[in-house]
Design a protein around this nucleic acid. Sequence first.
DNA 1: TCAGTCAGTCAAAGCGCTTTGGAAGTTTGG
DNA 2: CCAAACTTCCAAAGCGCTTTGACTGACTGA
Lengths: 365, 365
Amino acid sequence: MNFQSALIFISAMNLKELAHNLGLSQTTVSRALNGYPEVSEATRRKVHEAAEAHNYRPSVRAKSLATGRSMTIAHVVPVSSQHEMVNPIFSDFIAGAGEEYSRAGYDLLLSVVPDSEQDKMYRDLVTRQAVDGLIVQAPTLTDNRIPLLHELNIPFVVHGRSSGVLSDYNWLDVNNRRAFERATSLLLDLGHRRIALLNGLATLDFAHRRSDGYKRALLERGVAVDPDLIAHEEMTENYGYEVARKMLATSNPPTAFLVSSIIPAIGVRRAVKDAGFEFGRDVSIVIHDDDLSYFRNIGDVPLFTAVRSSVRDAGKRAAAMLIEIIRQRQEGQKDHPPMQTLMEAELTIGQSTGPLPVPTSTTHT
Amino acid sequence: MNFQSALIFISAMNLKELAHNLGLSQTTVSRALNGYPEVSEATRRKVHEAAEAHNYRPSVRAKSLATGRSMTIAHVVPVSSQHEMVNPIFSDFIAGAGEEYSRAGYDLLLSVVPDSEQDKMYRDLVTRQAVDGLIVQAPTLTDNRIPLLHELNIPFVVHGRSSGVLSDYNWLDVNNRRAFERATSLLLDLGHRRIALLNGLATLDFAHRRSDGYKRALLERGVAVDPDLIAHEEMTENYGYEVARKMLATSNPPTAFLVSSIIPAIGVRRAVKDAGFEFGRDVSIVIHDDDLSYFRNIGDVPLFTAVRSSVRDAGKRAAAMLIEIIRQRQEGQKDHPPMQTLMEAELTIGQSTGPLPVPTSTTHT
DNA sequence: TCAGTCAGTCAAAGCGCTTTGGAAGTTTGG
DNA sequence: CCAAACTTCCAAAGCGCTTTGACTGACTGA
C-alpha cells in the first residue's frame, strides 16, 4: 500500500501517459472514461482497468478549462461585522447541501467574507469563472445580490426571499409568516396577551415575515402590538438571556415569548428561571426550531413548543434545485420559469407552553 | 449600472481581447497585472485601468492550469453516520480559517462527506489536483489520513493530534490534557470527589487526552476513577441532558461535572435543575469552552466555569500555518521541520462551581 | 564609435483535458 | 460484389492563462 501509493504519486499519471500505456489515443481514453458510446465495450473495460490500476483521475484544472464548467457551487457566508459571528444554522444547511453536491459530482466553494464585502465576492466568483452556480443565504429586505446575479447571468437559488425584489428568481423558503401566525395564535389561545417576540436582525427578510405573522395574529384578536415587546438581534444565547431578563424585570412583563431560534431560547429559558418564574407555567415559550443536529428539540414531550422546519432539509432541497437549474441551462433551455418552493413548518407541542397562570393577565408592581 | 454590467457579461473579456484592445501582447498584459518588474510603470497603469474598466479578472480555470496551483485549500468535514450531525464548532473554525484564506487569495473547498468516505475524498481531492493543501479535522487516536496525506505528498495541517501516529506532521492543538487536569484539580480543591466526565467520542484523540488529564488529576489526589462517571458521545445538548439525568438519579450521584463542550453542558445544567439541585451549589460544572460566537460564555461572572480556547482562533492559526507551508513548498524548500503549535486554554471562574455542599465529601449508599 | 547592458516588449510553447472532423476497417443491402 | 452505413478509433485544435527565450531600441562605458 505504501509502496504503491508512492509510485502513484511519482508517476502523477495524466491522460497522455495513460493513453500511451494503453496504446490508444487520448480521445478514445477520454471518451471511454466519460461514458461516450463510440467506444467498444472491450476497450472501455481495458481503459477503466488501467485507470483504476494507475489511480488516474482527470485534473479538474484541465477539465474545467476544456469544458467551460467548473463543477463547483459557491456558498457565500457572511461574517457579521457586529459579533464576528457565523450563523450557526449554516453548518446544518451546508451538511444538507453538501450531500446533494457530492452525489452530483459538484464541489462546494465556501466563501467566508465580512458582510460588507459580499457583493464584491459574488462578482468575483462569477467573473473569475470559479463557479457554475451560487446559493444566496439570509436575504435582506431588498437584497441587491439578486439583481446582481441576474446581471451576471449565473444560476442561483435564494434560501429565503427578498420582499423588496420584484423580479422573479429561484427560491426556497419556509412559510415564516404563517408559522409565526400559528405560534402566536397558540399563545393567544392559551390566554396570553403579553407576548414578546425575539426576532432575528431587522434587516433580514425572514425576520420581517415573522414579525408580520406575529402582528397579524395579535391584531386579529384585537391585541395591540407593543413595540417594547419586540426585539431584533443576532441569534445568540446571550441575546436571548439579556433581552428576556430586561423584559421580565419591567412592571408589565410578558407572560410568553416567541423566539426565532432555539439558541436564544436557551437564554430566555435561563432568564425565566433566574427571575424565579416557572418555565412553561408562569412564562411560556414558543420557538422556531431549525432542527439543528447538535440541539435537537425532541423526546416524548420536547423541551420547547415549536414551529419546526429542518434547515438541513432546506439545504438539501436548495442544492438539488440549483443543480437542476444548472442542468437546464446547460441543455440550452433558456425559457424555464423560476423554481420556487414554499415549505410549511410543523407545530409541535412541548414543555414550554401552558395556559396563562391564574391570577390575572397583568401583574402590578 | 445595469447597462454596464450587462455589457461586461456579454463581452466576457479575456486576456486576449484585453491585450488586443490595448495594442499590447498577452505577455505584457499578464505581467503588468501580476506585478512583474519588467513592465514600465506607464504601461502597467494603462493595463490596470483597462482591466478595471472592462471588469476583467483572469479565469481561475486557465490560471490554475497554467500555473499548476489551484489556490484552493480544502476542509473535509465528516458527517457523523450516527446522528447525521456536523460538529458545531466547524462554523467558527471555518470562519477563522476563511479570514486567512481570503487575505491570502485562497479559496476554500468544503467537502462534506459521511465519515466512512473520508479517505476516498482526501485521495480524490489530491489526485484530481483540486487543492494546494488540506486541513485535517477531528483526528482519531491513530488517524490514517495522516500517513495517507504524507504519501500523497501534499501540504496539510492537522487540527489536533493523533497519538498513534509516530511520524512528524504539522499540527495545531490545545493542551487538552493540561486543561482537563487543571479543571479537575479545581473541582478537587473545592472538595468534590464524585466528578463525572462527559467527553466527546472515544475514537477522537482529543477525548483521549482530556480523559488523561482528568484521570491524572484524580489519581494524584488518590481519588479512584469510577468508569460509571465517564461518558463518551457526540456533543449534543441531548446527550448532556440524558447522561446527567441518569447519573444524578443513581444512589451515589456525582457532585460535579466536567463537560467537553458548552452545548452538552446546557443539557447538563437542565438535568441538574430538573433533578431539583441547585446549579453551582449542589452540583458544580466545569466546561471546555470553544468560545462559539453564538454561545458566548461571558459576562462579569460567566455562566460556566471553563477552560477556554477559541476555536475560531485555532482556525485562523491553522490556516496561516498551512499557507506558510504551501509557500515554503513552492519556494522549493523541502527540508523544513514540521510546524507544531500547542495552545494553552485559559481558566475562567463562572457561576457554575462552588465548594462541595456541607454534609460530607462522599455520601454512602 | 561600438560592443555590452538593460528596459520593455512579443511570439510561441505549454498546462491536461475535451471535442471536432475525419479516416480507417467492418457490415449491410441491393 | 460494391456502394452505403456503421463502428471504432485518431490527429489536431482549442480552452485562457503563464512563462520561456528572443528581439528591439536606448543607454552605457572605454
